[in-house]
Design a protein around this nucleic acid. Structure first.
Length: 417
RNA sequence: GGAGGAGUGCCCGAGUGGCUAAAGGGGGCGGACUGUAAAUCCGCUGGCUAUGCCUACGUUGGUUCGAAUCCAACCUCCUCCA
């Protein structure tokens, strides 16, 4: 194991953030010596980031904690072009308005992890639209394109694999590394940034910027990537029943976010504690040593700590308490996701089928029907067997809500208003 | 520009005139077992005002009693040649 001198790389190393690095010794020396500026780029393809980006965000968090200056780059310029990676699906073109809205949605998350401001260690936010949209093709080719060797570009994994498999690679995609490389150069010029980080799939794109820095700015820039995150059983991180695990609370409630972490596979607990919580390493070692059912203890800590990072301590504790009541006492706990419903509708009586759809537990009446057949539907903890059953005021429990369950884990409260 | 090939449900992939809401697998959901885990086993996996109706095999038309399957045009993608 390498022994790093800088606090930042030490932390990254022991927590498992590092996949690849360019010139580790020099980067280590730089981080140990002075306040370094680093950036990570994020695309604006959705109105919220999801857990897939969390490793990157945590890395920026540690970067700042270690006394450096992080930059979050919003890729609204590159998003406008549209990332052509998907091979047979022509991505829908996002309008400027949507991109702008997405950008604003994504921004909120960074503020939970980073401190922005004008101080030397305060985080900055940039947007590559500010320079990319102004690019002139001829100038760009002449000033930047000349330094890119096609011979080298086709050696890069991202390109080579596509060529070897005889898969289509459009010129637009081929240019992507030029744009991202140019971003790095531009950011370096504007801020003195010396390090770009990202997921392992970004490695070659980052290196393009490193090359450009050496050629055009006569400066050594650095690259650092994180491992691609999958669960121990090989699935991609970030998908649940309801879809992606979003970071914005209006897209995924803190309770559901807590549940996501609570359901971590045994084999992933230690790795996730290191990556997604800021607990001291000794504490993580203690939790990781738990065995059998004791691992549940570690999972609860993971869930609460990870949720606290994103949604705040209070929301995390509340989610933990709600879960405790719902799962360990079997009680209908206030704090479960709640759906409001008009009093008048309830007075008239609502069919179970539709109610489950309204509550967001099922996608269609047919799906509810199937779930009833499978014995998964419970209202106020009583199994429903008749799909023509209607729910009305009689079903409102003492606490003023109706508890709908789907399976053992998913519960929603219906509240008349 | 020329020749050839391909487009099927969330994904992969079978299907070449009725038995096809479409094999099989993956994924997902539910159940059993457990520890709100993994692995394993079982069931489900288009919609609806539901013994019926509607939508669906790239798009639009056509042939036929009947089309994912045949024909035409178009769109998109791939391969090879120039």
């Amino acid at each position: 194991m390498n022994q790093y001198k800088s606090e930042f790389l030490k932390v990254l190393q022991e927590r498992g953030f590092i996949h690849q690095m360019s010139n580790a010794e020099a980067l280590d020396a730089l981080c140990a010596k002075e306040t370094v500026t680093a950036y990570i780029g994020f695309d604006c393809t959705a109105s919220s980031l999801h857990v897939g980006s969390l490793v990157q965000i945590m890395m920026l968090y540690w970067f700042q904690q270690c006394g450096h200056r992080p930059i979050t780059l919003m890729g609204s310029g590159t998003t406008r072009v549209g990332d052509p990676t998907g091979k047979d699906e022509s991505r829908k073109v996002l309008t400027d308005e949507i991109i702008e809205a997405n950008k604003n949605g994504i921004k909120q998350v960074f503020e939970k992890f980073l401190t922005y401001g004008d101080g030397p260690q305060d985080a900055m936010m940039l947007d590559n639209a500010d320079w990319l949209l102004k690019l002139n093709y001829m100038e760009f080719l002449r000033d930047v394109g000349r330094y890119f060797s096609v011979n080298q570009m086709i050696q890069r994994d991202s390109v080579r694999l596509r060529l070897e498999r005889e898969q289509h690679l459009s010129f637009l995609e081929f240019n992507y590394m030029l744009l991202q490389g140019y971003d790095y150069l531009e950011i370096h010029r504007q801020t003195g940034c010396r390090l770009q980080m990202g997921g392992s799939d970004q490695w070659s794109n980052i290196l393009s910027g490193v090359d450009l820095g050496r050629r055009l700015a006569d400066e050594e820039l650095f690259a650092l990537t994180t491992p691609l995150l999958t669960t121990a059983s090989g699935a991609k991180m970030g998908k649940t029943a309801a879809g992606a695990v979003w970071l914005n609370p209006d897209m995924l409630s803190p309770y559901d976010y807590w549940q996501f972490w609570r359901n971590t596979e045994d084999a992933d607990v230690e790795r996730f504690l290191k990556l997604f919580t800021i607990l001291p390493m000794e504490e993580i070692a203690r939790l990781a040593a738990l065995e059998g059912a004791g691992i549940n203890e570690a999972k609860k800590v993971l869930a609460t700590e990870a949720t606290a990072m994103l949604h705040g301590r209070e929301a995390a504790e509340a989610a933990a308490e709600t879960a405790r009541k719902a799962f360990e006492e079997g009680a209908s706990a206030a704090g479960l996701p709640t759906v409001m419903i008009a009093r008048s509708e309830l007075e008239a009586g609502i069919g179970v089928l539709g109610l489950y759809v309204t509550a967001g537990l099922c996608a269609s009446n047919g799906e509810t029907r199937r779930n009833i057949k499978g014995g998964a539907v419970k209202v106020n903890d009583k199994a429903v067997t008749d799909h023509s059953a209607t729910i009305s005021f009689e079903n409102v429990a003492e606490d003023g809500t109706i508890k709908l369950s789907l399976g053992k884990k998913k519960h929603v409260l219906i509240k008349p208003v």
